[in-house]
Simulated assay, not measured.
Amino acid sequence: MIPVDVAAAFFATAILLGLAPGPDNIFVLTQSALRGPRAGVLVTLGLCTGLVVHTLLVAFGVAAVFAASDLAFTVLKLAGAAYLLYLAWQAFRAPAESIRLGSAAGPGGWALYRRGIVMNVTNPKVSIFFLAFLPQFADPARGPLGVQMMLLGALFMLATLLVFGGVALLAGAIGARLGGSARAQRVMNRVAGTVFALLALKLATTSR
């Protein structure tokens, strides 16, 4: 069992990490601004589902493979970069009508949720981060380390849900004010496409 003070310190740290600008919260922000807070929340749920995968990888030691293998790390990051470039291409070619808030022409709930999962799972740095971060708050004297890792991962997911959910609501409110303007929609779409392309470049050129 993890002591309350250790859990509280871990949760506070996770909140601060969630607030720091990064690919995931920028991804939530752009989707929320384009398609409303519901889209951002769905992407956030997808990202949190991806964190389940990373938590299990760390709990069972598989993340160590990605930390040690250049090939595994490179293949996964390039897959993530390719997916982000695909999203950038979609954003650049989409007409203003297809990004109206609440429009049926945009991606559905499952597609948005899936985007969050793919975005998170294909970033090998998350697994490596978890591999370095979670053990600092675990202690073999408290019981099985795998169980502690899963509990810490659940706390991290809760912090992510709260922070990114707040980002989604705020960005969605701002996007709603601009949603009635076709020109603003086109600008938002171009900005989103640029952000996705830059995130792809960052991921493709990242090192361990």
Rank of each mutant, 00 (worst) to 15 (best):
P3E: 10
V4R: 09
A7S: 11
A7R: 08
A8L: 15
A8I: 12
A9Y: 07
F10E: 04
F11Y: 10
T13E: 12
I15R: 05
L16A: 14
L19Q: 01
G22E: 01
I26T: 13
L29Y: 00
Q31S: 08
Q31I: 06
Q31T: 11
S32T: 03
S32R: 01
A33K: 00
R35Y: 12
A39K: 00
A39N: 00
V41F: 11
V41S: 01
V43F: 01
V43K: 00
T44S: 08
L45S: 12
L47E: 02
L47W: 03
V52S: 05
V53K: 04
L57I: 06
L57E: 03
V58T: 12
A59F: 05
F60T: 15
G61F: 13
V62T: 14
V65F: 14
F66T: 11
A68V: 10
S69A: 08
D70T: 14
L71W: 11
L71V: 14
L71T: 14
L71Q: 11
A72G: 13
F73H: 04
L76V: 13
K77W: 03
K77R: 15
L78R: 06
A79E: 02
A81N: 01
A82T: 08
L84W: 00
L85I: 09
Y86N: 03
A88V: 02
Q90N: 13
Q90W: 01
A91P: 00
F92E: 02
A94M: 06
P95G: 05
S98G: 11
S98D: 15
S98T: 14
S98H: 09
R100A: 14
L101G: 00
S103G: 15
A105V: 06
G106T: 07
G108K: 10
G109R: 12
G109C: 11
W110R: 11
W110F: 15
Y113I: 08
R114E: 03
V118P: 12
V118I: 15
M119K: 00
V121I: 14
P124M: 11
K125P: 07
S127W: 02
F130K: 01
F130P: 00
F130V: 02
F133Q: 02
F137N: 02
A138S: 15
P140W: 10
A141E: 15
A141N: 12
P144W: 09
L145D: 06
L145V: 14
V147L: 15
Q148N: 10
Q148D: 10
L152H: 06
G153D: 09
F156W: 11
M157L: 13
M157R: 05
M157Y: 05
L158G: 10
T160A: 14
L161K: 05
L161V: 07
V163R: 02
V163C: 07
G165S: 07
G166N: 06
A168V: 04
L169S: 04
L170Q: 03
A171W: 01
G175F: 00
R177P: 02
R177V: 02
R177D: 04
G179V: 03
G179L: 00
R183M: 09
A184E: 05
V187Y: 12
N189S: 15
N189E: 11
V191H: 05
V195L: 15
L198Y: 06
L199H: 05
L199N: 11
L199R: 04
K202L: 15
A204G: 12
A204V: 10
T205W: 13
